[in-house]
Every structure is written in structure tokens, then in C-alpha cells.
Design a protein around this nucleic acid. Structure first.
Length: 428
RNA sequence: GUGAGCGUAGCUCAGCUUGGUAGAGCGCCAGACUGUGGAUCUGGACGUCGGGGGUUCGAAUCCCCUCGCUCACCCCA
């Protein structure tokens, strides 16, 4: 009976972004580009598709991302490809591939684009999600870390956010971190019996993750576990102290978070995260850190690096939340609606529309003949600031009616005067 | 991968407990108002009640299965 076919929907965890919401995304991206430019970052665009090995080597063979979240498939020639789950590895790959390290300076790069991870979707977490990232390659100077954090705080402020906090930690380097993990594992042996089931498991598989546990009853136990910052080797300790001192000088507020552990293997020394209370369970707005060993992991020369990934979906969520209290109505999307009546008016109306558009005005014109009443209704619905009325009377006098939609007043003008008049009126 | 909640008009939702064959608000269309929108009034269109099966004389309502969405766990941006 029913021969109706089921409509095709967007795949799970992906979504369409429609106007007017896309306006918010544009604002977030514009503000990001402007802020990055102020700190002399330039845009890099890398492919969304990469060789699978790029991520398994850099992000880490036994991380959740690589083990169970990547969209990986064999290309027709059997090469294993992956939809990028993050972009830092790609940026470093490009840096190596184009020998940018030969230029004898550091590189400050940013990117904006989609990433893919096959997780169960929830608030602030999607299978196709967007990251805005920035990377500094070619130096391990602590001021790079501090400057980036200063920049990020500026960006969030410019976007009107206030309820966020910067969490800071150091995870040491390839030399001192294993020592610490060993110490931590030993410390856990005696107390893990009193902890939640997850922690008992993590105590053996990934002790660092225990520090991240949110179970209330475990907190006092975690408080007493050794902190990594107390087990850094002298070089890492000195680096971390320099970063915090620099942040203090810049007046950037932060909270030392000995329990901040990041989930990607390539991080060394400084790690950070900015969280926001408006986001729900996925409260990390952005995160990142230093990755001094990453280049070598993927076959490049030793190259220190520091970077951030901002969750654009979450940032948009937070900005929308912050803007809720403000009463400001949405800005008008349209400057002029041209209402014409009668076949004879179509050609002059089209000419006027073209002229106004060339003058940079946002113009809409009805395509089908319509009564004036209907046209003005449409103009109103579209939020047009002005309407131009062209009918029999206007054609005979050669002067068109220009109506201010909010005031209701209208004025008779010759076609040649309209552009100037509207531009002046709209500038107010 | 696991758990919970929810799927009824374009949107937001009521109706379900106590089965009797579908409602509100908003939006949309038209008219009152023959070339002047936003207000008001009047009228109108629009539903496989997510899908399938079962119970029943009768199912949006009860039962089973299934799909989808959402939130949470996990992990991260």
C-alpha cells in the first residue's frame, strides 16, 4: 500500500548547520582569524584524508581515538586511509613534508575545519565536529606557551565569554614521565581497593587516567596521590616554572591542575585546558599542550611544538549561551525589498535591484507578480529596512516610492537617487 | 560499547495512568482592508500519532520487537 520510501537523513553524529545559526559560526571564525592574525599566525589547510599511520604513530597506538574511534578504510589500491580525528599531526606532517624547518624561523599556523571520531554523540560531542587550532613549531621557549594562552583568553573575551577557567599542568617529558607513572602505579597498589571499579582497572592499565576520575568518594584518595609536577626532571621543572612566571607577568589567570591528563600520547611538558560551566558533561572548550617529540614520531627532524585545539561546536554553544541574556534583536539581514506591480514594472525593478546590489546593498526582489500587500508583508517578514515600490503610478511619474519599514514613512525619489539615499539612511 | 529518557501538524507540546478512531499555541494561506507590512478579528489547509507485530468489537493510549533522537557513562575538542 505504502510506496513511500524512507527519507534519507544525515548520518548519526553529523548535523546540518542552518541560518541563522551559521551566522554565529561565522562570527566565531571571524573573531578567531582576527585574533590569530594579531599574534602573527597564518592559515594552513591540510587534507581531511590522511594515511592511517600518521595518527596511529602520533596520537598513540593504544589511545581510544586510534583503537576505536577512527573512520578508517582501505582505498581501492589497498592503502589504509583515515578521516582525520585531529589536525596537529597533519600540520606537523605538512611542516616536515615542505621542509619548513629549513627556513630558520618559527612557524605560527592556524586551521579551521572538520574532524571525525566515531563516538556516541551527546551534548557538545559529534562524530563530525569542528576544531579551530593553532600551532607554533620550531621552538620550546616557555614564552610561546604563555603567549598562546594569553591569546586564547583574549579570544574568549572577545566572544563575550566570562565563566571559563584555564587549567594548567605539566606532564613531563619522555624521560621523567615514565618514572612518575611507575611511582604512581606503586602508590595506587595500596589504595586502589578503596576506589571505584573504573579506577581499579585504570590503576593497572593507565594510571594517569585515575587522576581524571570524577567519582566523589575517590577524591580524597586522589588528593593524596603523588603529583607529577613534583616528579619532573630539572629541565621540565624549570620550563614549567618559566611558563607560570610568564603567565603571572602577563596577568593571565590560571589554576594549577595536577590532575589534568590529556588523552593523546604526543603531549610533553605543558598541558592545558579551558573549561566552561555552560557546556554539560563535555565541558572542555579547548585543550592542548606542548609536543616536543611529535615530529620525530612521524619521521621528521627534532622539532619542538606547542598547540591548541578549540572545540568550535562547544565554543558556539558557549557563545550562544552567553548571548542569551542580551536583549539585542538579530540584526536585519536585508536592506531593501523591491516590490513591483504589473508586468511593465518588472524590467525597471530588475534594473534597480542590480544597481543597488552593485552598490553593496543587500537586496531582495519578488520573482512572481504579487499584490503590494503581499510584497510588503514579505519585506516585513524578511526584516527589510526599506522597501521600494514600483507600480503604474511610479512608472508614469518616473519617481519610485521608498518606504522606511520601521518608521512607516515613505519618500518619492528618482531611481538614480535611490542608492545614495539608502546608503546614507542605512549608515545611521 | 553500556544505561536512561523521549518520538503526536512546519515548530513547541497536550492527550496515554482509567482504550471509544486527534487537539492547543505559534507559524502558514485567504478574507475583512480594489496600490501599503507589523496589530486585531474571521475562515482555511496540513497528521502513515517513528515503524512493525500482538491483545481487543475497538489502540496515539496496553504488551513485544525495531528504528531514530537526546542526555549520561567512557573519552575528548
Amino acid at each position: 500500500m505504502s510506496n513511500k520510501i524512507a527519507p534519507i537523513r544525515s548520518v548519526k553524529g553529523t548535523r546540518d548547520l542552518l541560518p541563522p545559526e551559521t551566522g554565529l559560526w561565522q562570527r566565531v571564525e571571524d573573531e578567531s582569524r582576527r585574533t590569530f592574525a594579531a599574534y602573527n599566525f597564518q592559515e594552513i589547510r591540510t587534507p581531511i584524508l590522511e594515511a592511517t599511520a600518521l595518527f596511529s604513530r602520533s596520537v598513540g597506538e593504544d589511545t581510544d581515538i586510534v583503537m576505536k574511534e577512527m573512520y578508517t578504510f582501505d582505498d581501492r589500491d589497498r592503502e589504509s586511509l583515515t578521516l582525520r580525528p585531529e589536525a596537529t599531526a597533519s600540520v606537523v606532517r605538512a611542516y616536515i613534508e615542505h621542509s619548513l624547518f629549513n627556513e630558520g624561523r618559527l612557524h605560527k599556523l592556524y586551521y579551521i575545519g572538520p574532524m571525525f571520531r566515531r563516538e556516541r554523540p551527546q551534548k557538545g560531542r559529534y562524530r563530525q565536529f569542528y576544531q579551530i587550532g593553532a600551532e607554533v613549531l620550531g621552538s620550546d621557549h616557555p614564552s610561546i606557551d604563555a603567549e598562546m594562552l594569553e591569546m586564547l583568553v583574549l579570544l574568549l573575551e572577545r566572544l563575550g565569554l566570562s565563566g571559563f577557567s584555564l587549567l594548567l599542568n605539566s606532564v613531563g617529558c619522555s624521560k621523567c614521565r615514565p618514572q612518575y607513572v611507575k611511582t604512581l602505579r606503586q602508590a595506587l597498589q595500596s589504595v586502589k581497593a578503596n576506589m571505584c571499579a573504573d579506577c581499579q582497572r585504570r590503576a593497572d592499565t593507565n594510571p594517569l587516567r585515575v587522576l581524571d576520575c570524577k567519582v566523589e568518594a575517590d577524591q580524597p584518595i586522589i588528593e593524596r596521590l603523588p603529583h607529577i609536577v613534583e616528579h619532573l626532571d630539572p629541565e621540565c621543572r624549570q620550563h614549567f616554572d618559566a611558563v607560570t612566571a610568564d603567565l603571572d607577568e602577563r596577568g593571565v589567570a590560571y589554576t594549577l591542575s595536577p590532575r589534568l591528563v590529556r588523552g593523546l600520547d604526543y603531549y610533553t611538558r605543558t598541558t592545558f585546558e579551558i573549561t566552561s560551566s555552560v557546556l554539560g558533561a563535555q565541558n572542555a572548550l579547548l585543550g592542548g599542550g606542548r609536543y616536543d617529540g611529535l615530529s620525530e614520531m612521524i619521521g621528521g627532524p627534532p622539532t619542538p611544538g606547542f598547540g591548541v585545539a578549540i572545540g568550535e561546536d562547544r565554543l558556539v554553544l558557549a557563545v550562544a549561551e552567553a548571548a542569551k541574556d542580551k536583549t539585542g534583536p538579530a540584526a536585519s539581514q536585508l536592506d531593501v525589498y523591491i516590490a513591483w506591480m504589473g508586468d511593465a514594472a518588472l524590467a525597471p525593478a530588475t534594473v534597480l535591484a542590480r544597481q543597488l546590489r552593485r552598490d553593496g546593498l543587500r537586496v531582495e526582489i519578488g520573482y512572481e507578480p504579487a499584490k503590494l500587500k503581499k510584497s510588503l508583508g514579505l519585506a516585513s517578514k524578511l526584516g527589510a529596512r526599506f522597501a521600494v515600490i514600483i507600480g503604474e503610478g511610479e512608472l508614469s511619474t518616473g519617481r519610485y516610492q521608498v518606504k522606511d519599514m520601521s518608521a512607516g514613512a515613505q519618500k518619492e525619489l528618482e531611481p538614480a537617487q535611490i542608492a545614495e539615499y539608502l546608503k546614507a539612511a542605512l549608515a545611521k
